[in-house]
Simulated scan of single mutants.
Amino acid sequence: MREPAIITEGLDHFFGEGEARKQAIFDVNLKIEHGKLTILMGPSGSGKTTLLTLMGCLRHVEHGSVRLLGHELHGAQEAEMVHLRRKLGFIFQAHNLHESLTATQNVMMGLQVHGRGNADKQIRAAHHMLGLVGLSDRLDYLPANLSGGQKQRVAVARALASNPDVIFADEPTAALDKVSGRNVVDMLKAMGRERGTTTVMVTHDNRILELADRIITLEEGRVVRDETA
């Protein structure tokens, strides 16, 4: 029986040095199973995004343990972190699109980072993903000519196009209307069912909570509630 997609044990995290040193994460112990949609909730400053970045190889684990897809992140070398990131998808509230590239080219960049297919296959895959997020009529648009919600949907398509093992999402529906936000989360749920993709999402969006397999609530860096649907 394979181990969970993500395991944290005794995870602490600190910011700053000396007298300015402040603890942001306190003794977090979690097991997140493959194929599930887990939502991290809590007030601003509760440690949600910090925890997400520790689990997602975007911040070094210095105290305690994080095992991601069977790899220990505490003490991991940068080369191993880069290797792991290629198995992940990231969706952030700031869409981080390249302004000089079209929607199709932005999605293709996600495929190129993962080394998936030749140019023709990448174009077809990009068009397919953009169609799934409702942007078939915006394939050749630059970000400057897209609305905030459309930019976010391009970012979602980019993250999902490479079929990642784990998706880390920080407020992915914040710029989306109710229908678009629901559609994005439905896609993530479907990827969990059909492909075994694991999703960990930070959100304040109460409209999508019913879709979660699990809701973990943090306050002041501590897990205070852990509910399974």
Rank of each mutant, 00 (worst) to 15 (best):
A119W: 11
I91Q: 06
G134L: 08
R124V: 12
F90V: 04
Y141D: 13
G89K: 00
L84G: 01
G89E: 05
Q93V: 07
H98N: 09
H114N: 13
K121R: 14
Q150I: 07
F92Q: 01
A94D: 14
N145M: 12
D137Y: 11
F92V: 00
M108I: 15
G149C: 10
V107A: 00
N106D: 09
G75N: 08
D140I: 05
L97A: 05
V133D: 02
H128C: 10
T104D: 03
D137W: 08
S136I: 07
M129G: 03
S147H: 11
E80W: 04
E80M: 10
N106H: 07
A103F: 04
A79L: 06
Q93C: 11
A76M: 13
F90S: 01
M81A: 11
D120I: 10
L146G: 06
E78F: 00
G75I: 12
G148R: 12
Q122A: 11
R85Q: 00
Y141K: 13
A125S: 13
Y141Q: 13
H95N: 14
L111W: 05
A119H: 14
R138D: 01
L101T: 04
V133F: 01
V107N: 02
H98D: 11
R86W: 05
A125N: 09
H128E: 15
G148K: 12
M81C: 12
G131E: 14
I123P: 02
A126N: 06
H95Q: 13
Q93S: 10
Q105R: 13
L130K: 02
M129N: 03
G75V: 09
T104K: 05
L130P: 00
H95A: 14
A119K: 15
L142C: 06
H98M: 15
F92W: 13
R124Y: 00
M81F: 00
S100H: 14
A144L: 13
G89F: 00
Q105T: 10
D140K: 12
E80I: 06
V133W: 01
M109N: 06
T104S: 12
D137K: 14
E80G: 05
H127Y: 10
V107W: 04
Q112F: 07
L142W: 12
A119S: 13
G115F: 03
R86Y: 06
G115Y: 01
L139K: 08
R124Q: 15
Q93T: 08
R86E: 02
A76T: 06
H98A: 13
H128R: 15
I91T: 07
L111P: 03
I123L: 14
L84D: 03
A126L: 08
R138W: 02
G148T: 13
L88G: 04
H95P: 01
R85Y: 03
H127C: 12
E99P: 10
H95S: 14
A76H: 08
H127G: 00
A103V: 09
N118R: 10
Q93D: 09
